[in-house]
Nucleic acid binder design. Structure first.
Lengths: 322, 322
DNA sequence: CTGTTAGCGCTTTCAT
DNA sequence: ATGAAAGCGCTAACAG
């Protein structure tokens, strides 16, 4: 008992002599309290899971996920919590150790896949009975004890499309990944908002670019251009695809922004690497991860999330491609 | 006890009827076994920690770390283990919940900072009494139950430097981050190897580029060029710095590779975004993370690491800048 | 085939 | 100021 009191810094419950004696013993034995005894007794696990639903093994390749996880990890660690990271397929959620066994106090979720499947997955995670933070999602049927954190993809996308329409573009091509992500859907909605508001005869087509990496994006765009000719503007779902498109047009001798306008999305560090630079929009992914951490810590100590939803603004960053 | 047997799929110990009854109850109650009771009883935690020692909050910004963590996470998750992710300062290791409390079965470590401080940190982690995998490091005094996994930075760096020397470069400038990383030290050693083997009067200078990000690298290079003039070749510690240098020279009207050669390192996806493309070397970071996972699982089930050290080859990838 | 007992390490409560 | 008892959920060992 006294050891427990020492570990928990309740020094007023003991004499200086015993405290010293215990501290010496702890140091010389290299004693560390076992977290499982602690959790079992207190039924708090001091751990939060972050689950990324993505069939790709390289699920951390996108800086969005990376900064999100960094913000979350730093926030939780600073407050005495651990972050458990996992990737899973939509239908394999149950395989993870911390899903089969209750090992965390809460779960953060980054979903991908068709909307209905995402909703089912969220419902299943919710059924685990832990508080949930879901990123980039806008649940329709909103379960209790779920907090949604997202960036204003729709608004920023609308601003980007407005910009190219303002520069006279009529035929817009949107590049999207083969797999559905909620953020991409929101951006597409934003593009459409702008088109609608603009009136006129402007049109918008969508092109799926496989794994959204460089070679696949170029191959998809190449095939499209052969049959459709040049669009007036390419609205890329993210900078990765935007840069691939830029290089593809460059290789064909097409001038950007002279002949075709291009926009990107998210503006993480590597956005600086392409020349000319894409007109883009800056993602506050790190802040979103940190906010998720704060929200969870509040939920775990106060019993309720401070808010059911939190939306982060996304500012345009100037570029030379539009 | 029967519930336990059901959860552990020991179906031969019960009748079909009871099995069904228990399974129904589990489903209708949403029962999940608590991991802490399991760990307490079995004194295995089914969790591994990955600690990145880096003062930068954006500790996952470099794709090297990112792919390493992805490989590790996927491997561990597939075998029923969880991955606990944390960032820490060199002297703040003790703050993490899973360090104060024993919560994992093993620890993976990615160190940075001065060599001596890194060695001290490894020793402290080792003192926690858990098996340790350390990345990119080459411990001098090698503790028991430690496995080192690294890529052949020195060899690939040597090949890169050999290449530029072969093209007649005499004055070499190496770009390194302000903070010390073991991999960067190894690359520097490789560059020096090539210089030594080459004989002749070739020289090598080193330039620290702050946080190694785009603006800082350009500022550092700009200042250096003002006082030193153009080198014959720039050997960048990684592609990030290499691309920043490329753009900086471009802005000055310097031709690459006509006037100055440039090489990069690691060749992750964004390496494709710069034009011309850097001569670089491809990091097997994902495979290293996966190998760490395999090594740990072997260590935890067999009682010993399969090998004390594992070195991954690094192949050059062709580019247009050297 | 089913159930009882005991103990893993921890902390809350209560006795000394 | 110190420590003894009890119980958190789990499973190995053993009894019925």
């Amino acid at each position: 008992m006294t050891v427990s009191n020492v570990v928990n810094r309740r020094f007023h419950l003991m004499s200086d002599a015993t405290r010293a004696r215990v501290e010496d013993a702890i140091a010389s034995l290299g004693y560390r309290r076992r977290a499982d005894g602690l959790s079992l007794r207190g039924s708090q696990r001091y751990a939060v899971a972050m689950v990324v639903v993505d069939p790709t093994p390289a699920f951390l390749a996108d800086p969005f996920t990376t900064y999100l996880v960094a913000g979350l990890t730093n926030t939780l660690t600073a407050r005495g919590y651990s972050l458990v990271l996992a990737r899973t397929d939509l239908d394999r959620l149950g395989d993870a150790h911390f899903v089969r066994n209750r090992a965390t106090d809460a779960i953060c979720l980054m979903l991908s896949g068709p909307r209905a499947a995402r909703a089912r997955c969220l419902a299943r995670v919710k059924d685990l009975g832990e508080p949930v933070v879901v990123f980039q999602e806008r649940p329709s049927r909103w379960p209790e004890d779920v907090c949604a954190i997202r960036q204003d993809d729709r608004g920023a996308a609308r601003a980007l499309a407005k910009h190219v329409l303002g520069r006279g573009a009529q035929r817009l091509l949107v590049l999207v990944p083969g797999r559905a992500w909620p953020a991409i859907e929101a951006r597409l909605r934003g593009f459409r908002d702008a088109l609608r508001e603009h009136g006129g005869r402007a049109t918008l087509e969508t092109l799926a670019c496989g794994d959204e990496h460089y070679p696949e994006t170029q191959a998809a765009l190449d095939a499209w251009l052969r049959t459709h000719g040049l669009p007036d503007a390419i609205l890329a779902g993210n900078d990765q695809m935007g840069i691939a498109a830029l290089r593809e047009l460059e290789a064909r001798g097409v001038r950007v922004p002279g002949d075709v306008l291009i926009t990107g999305f998210n503006a993480f560090e590597f956005w600086r690497y392409s020349m000319p630079r894409l007109l883009s929009a800056r993602s506050p992914a790190y802040e979103m991860g940190a906010a998720a951490g704060e929200a969870l810590l509040a939920r775990l100590s106060e019993g309720a999330f401070p808010a059911r939803e939190r939306v982060f603004p996304v500012d345009l960053v100037p570029g030379d491609t539009a």
